[in-house]
Simulated assay, not measured.
Amino acid sequence: MSAARAASGVNASGPVPRVRRVGIVGWGAIGRVVGTALAGGEVGGAELVCVVDNRPLGEAAPARQLSFEEALEHCDLIVEAAGQGAVREWGERVLASGTDLLIASTGALTDDELAKRLLAAGPGRVYFTGGALGGLDLLQAARSLGPLDQVLLTTTKLPATLEQPWMGEELLARMRTATGPVEVMSGTARDVPAKFPRSTNVAASLALAVGDPDAVRVRVVADPAARHTRHVVEASGPYGTYRFDAAHLPDPGNPATSQVVPYAVLRGVAALAGRTGHIL
């Protein structure tokens, strides 16, 4: 147990308010926005303690840079913003230390074995954010009435943001010379996030809401005219039909990520810090 958690107690006026001591893993497009907001006091009840990254941060970083092991000694909430690999390597250790974990790279959770291990680990608790996708709470509510008959996600992005090392020359050539939309891959929400680890975390978030990654069909489309990153969810079940269409501007520094994603992460931190009116 870290010193921060052990130090909680009661004063003469009642319980001492608990301040979330936050460590951010990954100082990229998501981590920088989240960390800067926390350091600026924009989320009440949450304090940025440290940043974990394998690259030097420089003097501009708003908090000290620590190793992962050191971060677990000083934080009670770790925010992952470094990619699926960080979840696989460190997720269980974070939770076993008693530290809570908020995952941005939800694609890692389509690995059933990893998801089971994280849910079984503790005493820390694991959370995930919907990121660039909305409507998840409604789909969770609909699922409680009965299984959804059909769930389809179509994600459209600029071709360059979807290029992957496993792609053959023919597919790459079609994407690079396309004058209109090109379907890059079609599969389930279990298959697709593994193939696009930085571009399709929304598919995993949708699968977690629906409760079955194999029941979610995903189409990944490359479009040279895609000024926005677009996610369209179409779902139906015995009690209703649902359609959500979200179009986001990509982050200028990392076009594979929508600009809204760090703010979804901040919303999750705020909910975990006890601010009212927030749904995680």
Rank of each mutant, 00 (worst) to 15 (best):
M1F: 05
S2K: 03
S2N: 13
A7F: 02
S8H: 04
G9F: 03
A12K: 11
S13G: 06
P15I: 04
V22E: 09
V22W: 03
G23S: 08
G28P: 08
A29K: 12
I30F: 14
G31A: 12
T36L: 07
A37W: 13
L38N: 11
L38H: 11
A39D: 01
V43E: 07
V43P: 12
V43T: 14
E47K: 02
E47N: 03
L48C: 02
C50Q: 03
V52P: 05
V52M: 07
R55F: 00
A60V: 11
P62V: 15
R64T: 14
Q65K: 14
L66H: 09
S67K: 12
F68I: 11
E69D: 13
H74R: 15
C75A: 09
D76V: 14
V79I: 12
G85A: 15
G85I: 15
V87K: 12
V87C: 08
R88P: 04
V94F: 05
L95M: 15
G98F: 05
T99H: 10
L101K: 02
L101W: 01
L101A: 05
L101H: 01
S105L: 06
T106Y: 04
D112C: 07
K116V: 11
L118T: 00
L119N: 00
A120K: 06
A121C: 06
R125P: 00
F128Y: 09
F128M: 08
F128W: 11
T129L: 15
G130Q: 11
L136W: 03
L136I: 06
Q140W: 04
Q140E: 11
S144W: 02
S144E: 01
S144R: 08
D149W: 02
Q150W: 03
T155S: 13
T156M: 09
T156N: 04
L158W: 00
A160T: 05
L162W: 02
L162R: 00
E163K: 00
W166M: 06
W166L: 14
M167Q: 12
M167I: 01
E169G: 00
E169Q: 09
L171S: 02
L172C: 00
M175N: 03
R176Y: 05
T177Y: 07
T177D: 07
E183Q: 13
V184P: 13
M185Y: 10
S186C: 15
S186W: 10
G187A: 13
A189H: 08
V192W: 05
P193V: 05
P193E: 08
K195H: 08
S199F: 10
T200I: 14
N201Y: 01
V202I: 05
A203L: 11
S205H: 09
S205G: 10
L206N: 06
A209C: 10
G211Y: 10
D212P: 06
P213K: 09
R217D: 07
V220H: 05
V221F: 04
A225F: 07
A225L: 13
R227S: 05
R227Y: 07
V232R: 14
V233F: 10
A235W: 09
P238S: 15
Y239M: 14
Y242M: 10
H248N: 07
L249C: 04
P250Q: 12
P252H: 13
G253D: 06
N254F: 10
T257M: 15
S258N: 13
V261H: 12
A264L: 10
V265Q: 10
A270D: 00
A270G: 13
A271G: 10
A271D: 03
L272D: 02
L272Y: 06
A273M: 07
G277D: 03
H278E: 06
I279V: 08
L280C: 01
